[in-house]
Design a binder for these strands. Sequence first.
DNA 1: TGTTAGCACTCTACTTGCTTGAGTGCTAAC
DNA 2: GTTAGCACTCAAGCAAGTAGAGTGCTAACA
Lengths: 348, 348
Amino acid sequence: MGYEELDARKMLILKAIIDDYISSMEPVGSRTIAKKYDMGLSSATIRNEMADLEEMGYLSQPHTSAGRIPSDKGYRLYVDKLMDPVDNSSLKPTEEDFEAIRSFMEKRIHELNGMVHAASEIVSRITHYAAVGMAESVNKHAIKTLKVISLDTDRVLVIVVLDNDVIKNQIVKLREPLLGEELSKLNVICGNILSGYRAQDISITMINDIVSLSGIERERILPIVDGVLECIKQCDSAEIYTEGTANLLEHPEFNDISKAKALIELFNKEDELARLLHSCGDAEASDIVIRIGTENKMLAVTDCSVVTATYSVDGVDIGTIGVIGPTRMDYGKVISALEYVRKRLLPK
Amino acid sequence: MGYEELDARKMLILKAIIDDYISSMEPVGSRTIAKKYDMGLSSATIRNEMADLEEMGYLSQPHTSAGRIPSDKGYRLYVDKLMDPVDNSSLKPTEEDFEAIRSFMEKRIHELNGMVHAASEIVSRITHYAAVGMAESVNKHAIKTLKVISLDTDRVLVIVVLDNDVIKNQIVKLREPLLGEELSKLNVICGNILSGYRAQDISITMINDIVSLSGIERERILPIVDGVLECIKQCDSAEIYTEGTANLLEHPEFNDISKAKALIELFNKEDELARLLHSCGDAEASDIVIRIGTENKMLAVTDCSVVTATYSVDGVDIGTIGVIGPTRMDYGKVISALEYVRKRLLPK
DNA sequence: TGTTAGCACTCTACTTGCTTGAGTGCTAAC
DNA sequence: GTTAGCACTCAAGCAAGTAGAGTGCTAACA
């Protein structure tokens, strides 16, 4: 994608600038580069190259007599071509991290949700940014088990278990009481007809089948079937876990309270988060997707970067973990944390 | 309890100072009081009284040439004796609030959890502070329904419904598969023996009864019974909803990032929040409890006030809502918001 | 004896001007 | 094409001075 405008030297200088800025958080000047990264060039030469890079839009200057900082476009090039290859041998999750994993195991939470939750906690702990975990929504998952249980005379509990072990339940109010045998008949019929299908595959014919096979009057059975569908549909709203939001406040770019507030607000809105993560997941090319600054359409994160990884087992997506931090984030560390989680955690 | 050391005039002046400070957020001086609240006294006289009040510990001075601000002790007296009687006629929840309530109703979430969630959202919206909702833990609630459902050959799903309609579930891994008839027998036995009891009332005899009545070998049935107990115990960890944490960042006392961070961290730790709310609920005297500043033992909230209301229907506690904000909070508004919720929301 | 006016005092917040240092852009020489 | 050198710019830090709010104290007053 046309980075030919940059010769090798410009690339090298850009890389040095971004590396330095990521670790120092301060605008970097030509002298710094000339001294720290000896590339046999004087500061004057580097100055000229920097001016070119700025003109091309890879760098910008907070004010005339300050050093340069990378622009979104600069970061883009950096993560695409310049960045050092990821090395996660240096990642040493603490004993606490292992404790967290163990604890989730021991509590016999074999569900995916528990795993995603644990994973995002660990990612946030390793990276010191905020992590968002999202278990894959029902859209891609079939119904494994479906039960209707009587609670009292006028209410039943509908439980749906998906094939990724996500469990959903909902209480449904009845017009008139349902007899015990009617209930067990309904259980069998619903189970037979609906299990194996995804929520989006349930057709009106299937519903009609349930009603007619049950042999119960239409107006008594319909609210229940309705409730079942409602419950299945409700599965659609994916479970979301946010971890380490407070970490973000450590980073100087969020000293500005109004920015911090916008972010914290975002983290409290599950639907927005889901949209954000999904919008990143589109690209099917690579499994780790990086969105830098204004590449995020969502206003609250236009000066953040969002790195998402989608995990799958046997070709089926099971969840997504996203890391949200300042554009000046340590991309290498974030990527290696996400890779680490893939290797160690998810394929049990 | 011994506020006799203060004569009526001192009280009046103290009240004026605190009222003013709550609305202005700025240290208030003697001239301000003399002018705005005409009590027929000169600033000099008020100055003398203020010096007395400071000596007695009701006020303090940020620095010599600033006005006075209330101390925790001052706020305590204020909320106990001085504060204007609560008037919640002025509380006009927005159309959005009603929308939130309606939406919860329509979704057929009749469970308590949904109500508590909605209520805390509304309280946070009215007050502009952070609200924490906590549905009452199982300790006080009996098991209404208990079901064991087969998921696949080596896993079952345990579902517990309490008499306040809280639903809990857990997946249990089996050593060996369980036959269909064994499962249904187990369902009946567990239901008969356990329902009606609270988690804390389950005795070892009851467990033994289940094992022997089931007629299944001890080593096959025990992990399941164990799982059932685990699930019931898990109910103990109350559901917690936090709303409006971002609101707190609006208030100038949290411009200090490190304070803000400590608070946001607290809001991400459910167990700590539960402890905080419970520690407030002890006092059985009044149903609204106010903890001011250092009266809170928890470090992160020593410069916050926590106002909690415990709600009950027919004498049974069903949940607690807490509001967390700066000690300089509008106590009247918070109390009336909590009262409003009691009147309009909870007794359906 | 309680209240008040007046005054000296204190301390913060704000302004102004100055200095320093980092960094740039440009030009001329290599 | 590269570099040295120089003039220029700008933010940040410092010092000194000012303004203003508020206090405490004293002495006079009712």
